[in-house]
């Protein structure tokens, strides 16, 4: 950032939106979203949003199971965005409710406004995304993001699904920020698998995160991994991954435009 730009203005222009995605549930998207968010929060203002509105679980990872207002209320038009923002673990956390009726009343397209509104006030947004590509609302976070972090398990179905996520993302004008192997149990072979996998992905391997009791314990405690077990091996892997993520400087007006008019026609 050139020194002659006043601090406040400089900050306004900078936001990078990452979608944390995988084709399959249970790969560790929410775990990864919270961990990357906390790691990036050392340097940036970070907002994490549970955009997996049909299978939300960020609230359980962030100790927000009792939160009064969630993204569901915002998407239903019943609450302003600010009411669903909670300052936790050095980040702004926007959890989503888990009820079926909340999901049914939500208007998915409002996510765009939510992202655009929060973008004005933060450096980095992480969208915890649905494990599906089969509906318009499921792919919306990937469409809205600048780039996608693809969470993979080293299995054939997970790799195949991850490739599909990449192709959807790039077709919709979203870059691949990198791939992240999670729940790795075989140490020696994973490096070969990662190298071979990288050939097919348009982003580098950000980290390989081991299958670990620390991750499960953090989830049970309702805390992100980096708060619960900051010294653990998986926590170190996530910090390493965060250093490999590029946070671009994007001028404020094109940013707002991007969310207003980009890929999604305005229905309102």
């Amino acid at each position: 950032m050139p020194a002659f730009i006043p601090e406040s203005e400089a900050n306004v222009g900078m936001v990078e939106v990452f979608a944390v995605a995988s084709g399959k549930g249970g790969t560790g998207k929410t775990t990864s979203t919270m961990a990357l968010g906390m790691a990036l929060a050392d340097e940036y203002d970070v907002t994490v949003i549970d955009a997996d509105t049909g299978m939300a679980n960020m609230l359980f990872h962030a100790g927000l199971a009792d939160a009064d207002t969630s993204l569901h209320d915002v998407l239903a038009g019943d609450a302003p965005v600010e009411a669903a923002v909670y300052n936790r673990f050095g980040m702004a956390v926007v959890p989503c409710g888990t009820s079926l009726s909340g999901f049914q009343q939500a208007e998915p397209d409002r996510l765009r406004t939510v992202v655009a509104t929060l973008a004005a006030d933060t450096d980095v947004i992480l969208l915890d995304s649905p494990a599906a590509l089969g509906s318009r609302s499921a792919v919306l976070p990937i469409v809205l993001a600048d780039s996608v972090v693809v969470v993979l398990q080293p299995t054939i179905p997970s790799l195949s699904d991850g490739l599909k996520v990449q192709e959807y993302a790039t077709t919709y004008g979203t870059d691949v920020a990198g791939i992240l192997f999670n729940r790795v149990t075989e140490d020696e072979a994973i490096d070969r698998v990662a190298t071979k996998t990288e050939q097919y992905f348009e982003g580098e391997t950000l980290a390989t995160v081991p299958e670990s009791d620390a991750v499960r314990a953090a989830r049970r405690a309702g805390e992100p991994l980096l708060a619960h077990a900051p010294e653990s091996t998986p926590a170190a892997a996530y910090r390493e991954a965060a250093t490999r993520l590029t946070v671009h400087d994007r001028p404020v007006d094109p940013v707002a435009d991007r969310f207003r008019s980009a890929v999604i026609p305005d229905h309102s």
């Binding site: 080293p154 299995t155 054939i156 790799l159 075989e186 072979a189 994973i190 070969r192 698998v193 071979k196 996998t197 050939q199 097919y200």
Partner: peptide
């Protein structure tokens, strides 16, 4: 992972 490598 051998099966995964073969796939890749």
């Amino acid at each position: 992972l051998a099966a995964v490598e073969q796939f890749l």
